[in-house]
Design a protein around this nucleic acid. Structure first.
Lengths: 145, 145
DNA sequence: CCGATATAAATGCAATTGCATTTATATATG
DNA sequence: CATATATAAATGCAATTGCATTTATATCGG
């Protein structure tokens, strides 16, 4: 019945626009450097965290907050590029493990400086450290479970 | 060269995840009510703001932060649904004006309670008013020009 | 007025995403 | 063990998005 308060609407609008604009900047920086999109970076990073054992697609989906079919297709594309590989999973015949390849590690390491520079330039430079910390905390608290 | 500071990365991660999760919730609420997506709401709202004169697609694109081709196609879809109409533009033969129809106003007004309720439930309820204001202010300052 | 350049909008085509369903295997229950 | 149910992953098809280019009209410099 009752509408959200004006501050709620203002914060929501700012959340949508700022996240979108920043994401665009970061994606643009990666593209300008001839590198894969951020979604690949995120996936490579999570997969690399489990480089010893590999990671199951359903676990990756949970960490990346992607839909199941999106994860399935993202994995296929990154496999096709040779940056990760599918390994048979002894425990569970329905699934498999995904592991990063040396080339995948190399690409992720190449992406990071570009990604990081974009974050510093477009985001970090705009707020003093204390306020960045405040912002992060508020955002985490605002995130639905 | 230098990486972003840890607080930067944490705030960035929180920005990406919170915005994505909240957007999902809002979109899900609209869909569950059998209503159009948020992109239609945003467009209808901006178009309705100029209900007297109509609005030019290039102006709409700037307000919605959409690419030109995205705006062109979004307009076509909303026109096809009968919620807006294209009007010949006397001033400029290259373009036209977009105006909301009565049905468009009706649909937008129907969407708002669902949209607002989702914002209250998933966002406003999670932070006290003062912190929502702080969050909005920080986000606006963090947004690149 | 004329050609050059800029701006508004649309579009062909490829890539990605969303939705619903399917396939395959695992787990639980009688 | 056999059947029912649940979980993991893939996929057909439609809708949307992205990219590059095209079309049309306007504006600018001579």
């Amino acid at each position: 019945m009752t509408s959200p308060r004006p501050e709620t609407i203002a914060a929501w609008t700012a959340l949508m626009t700022t996240s979108r604009v920043l994401l665009e900047r970061v994606e643009a920086a990666l593209k300008a450097a001839g590198l894969p999109a951020l979604s690949w970076y995120d996936a490579l990073l999570e997969i690399e965290k489990e480089r010893a054992t590999g990671i199951r697609p359903f676990e990756l989906k949970d960490r990346l907050l992607l839909p199941q079919y999106g994860t399935s297709r993202l994995i296929d594309r990154i496999v096709a590029a040779g940056l990760i590989e599918k390994l048979d999973c002894a425990d569970d015949g329905r699934g498999f493990l995904v592991r990063i390849t040396p080339e995948g590690r190399r690409v992720r390491r190449t992406m990071w400086p570009v990604y990081g520079a974009a974050l510093r330039e477009h985001f970090e430079s705009r707020l003093p450290a204390g306020e960045l910390t405040t912002l992060g905390g508020l955002l985490r608290r605002a995130r639905p479970d």
